[in-house]
Design a protein around this nucleic acid. Sequence first.
RNA 1: GUGCCUAUAGCUCAAUAGGUGGAGCGCCUGACUGUGGCUCAGGAGGUCGUGGGUUCAAGCCCCACUAGGCACCCCA
Length: 420
Amino acid sequence: MKYQRIRGMQDLLPDEQPYWSHVEATCHDLATRFGFERLEPPLLEATELFVRGVGDATDIVSKEMYSFVDKGEDALTLRPEFTAGVMRAYIENGLSSRPQPQKLYSFGPIFRRERPAKGRYRQFYQLNAEIIGSADALADLEILLIAHSLYREIGFENLVFQINSTGDPECKPRFLDALRAYFEPIADKLAPLDRERLARNPLRVLDTKERETLPFLADAPRFLDYLNDDCRSHFAELTGYLEALSVPYQINHRLVRGLDYYTKTVFELWGEGLGAQAALCGGGRYDGLIEALGGPPTAGVGFATGIERIIMSMRELGIPPRALRKPDVFIAHLGEPAKKAAVQLVADLRGRGIPARIAFGSRSLKAQMKDADRAGCGVALILGDAELAQGVVLARDLARSEQVSVPIAETPAWLAARGA
RNA sequence: GUGCCUAUAGCUCAAUAGGUGGAGCGCCUGACUGUGGCUCAGGAGGUCGUGGGUUCAAGCCCCACUAGGCACCCCA
């Protein structure tokens, strides 16, 4: 085999399309139902946007971006997430002058140059939703709810959100100080990796998987205990809504998220059967981001979910996709004059919105019938020169193995009556 | 990026102790000269991931590379 897929890239084959169209349609439908409008930023942005918007200390920026210099001039990057591009578009296109808040969603491919594994690809698809311009905890709730509705409508059960708060620029430093004060005296007992984290990014010690460190986490400071009044009441309001709506959630004191821009609410949802790549969706509030990107001070909250991981969980849990509509009608023909008439007929049916296939070549009727069966068609219209001479087709119901003779001109009506 | 495991037909997998590669499913054709599914018969399809090495002889042993998987890192 001479050519092969680029590492971490995948071909989405016809057999997988029922899953994709089901999930994709559910995403668009739900976003619309929740009052979100679509905003699709380009795949390419200035590298600097992601460095500033995502954070140059994050894994995404420091080692996972597909970046290149275009014709020796512009530093460009294939988007490694949606949020920064959406914020840039919001600022650049003056969406802050539209009625606030703006509820925007995006659906498309994302690129991260990580080592591939099951459920982890270098090009993968995300649904992303953002509410820009509201600090209300109700906005956080809507983000949680659209995610929850998506999974519920696809057929997931027993899903529980993990949520936490990571404060704001006023109370976050106090918590970080407390974390250091707790861990530094026992640093020599922590795993080596966690000693590094403590120095570089203390929050990361909280979600460690290192055995040596785990015993010390139970008594570690909790962010919720260090929130200022604003952050605490915001969190309480959100959890109050969740309880009122009976949306299952767990407060997870160890949940911290990698991106620099999060403030207040952070959350994740994990799926089954995905191994170490379990995160189905993640998100949170990012009240300082737009200002950091050169816009006016603007609150924001959003989430992203990975489509491949949803589909993989569906397979794992045996959740069937909605069947795709296949062509209902297959036209078989015998003889050259009949073939010409069949071309007319198939064009007529398609023009009337009836999905139809026509046999290629001039094969035996048997072979054509076999094709009709395997194409999943419900009806075969048989048009031979003999039928053509009488101005009819033989309409065969493939499931019932019954067929009748129908005048060619009445075929669309016959099919319509059958469909109803 | 690190460690470990894997790689044979379109798919899932066999191949005894190094000794010229098979099955099931799928695909094509026919039995049925104008009727699908079921059955039966026949057929096509492989430089054994790629490149090197050891050996009289390599799908099998060794090395490198490529790709996939698992764990780590991190996330969707």
